[in-house]
Amino acid sequence: MSHHLFILSPSDTPIYNLTYSSTKPAPTTNSPLSSNLPTWSTSAFAGTLTALSGASSTTQHTTGGGVRIGGGQDRHVIQMIANASLDAIEDVMRKEGAMYLKSVDKFNEWTVSAFITPGNTKFVLLHEAKNDEGIKSFFYEVWELYVKTMLNPFHSNQQVIRSSTFDTRVRASAKKYL
């Protein structure tokens, strides 16, 4: 089961991202409708369409076996989904004051949870299974790490976080909670 974390600056620019595969098995909620997909054509555009509709990830699941779960998903599509979910996040965020927006959006097989810092930086997590408490704890830890990074006077909230310490700690936190 894979998770994708994106930290987005207020102008929607990713300043950090993480792909994490947890050892927990992914829930199999596939509809029979999404099996036995036909291949319509071999043109590049059909490929785009296939990827965007979420079909490629499913085929990866079926063909890749247990090892490659989540690894072969189209990165671009994941990013597109994360980007598209910002619509819902912004909407909810303006109406609710909460920082942790759990399962704020669902798209294809992905559930999107988000965390908004007071500085309008958004943590967007794409996950497949329900794990509200774990995700909440994960977000709070990432927030703490993020704040520590922001304390650096030479770091602005527009800059990409390249700190390896940050990365290591976020990974550790992901391992703990996700």
Partner: peptide
Amino acid sequence: ISRTAISSLLAQAHGPWLLH
């Protein structure tokens, strides 16, 4: 009716089955 409600409902229409 919130917009998110409509959008999350609409998202159900989108999936791999579109390829069928």
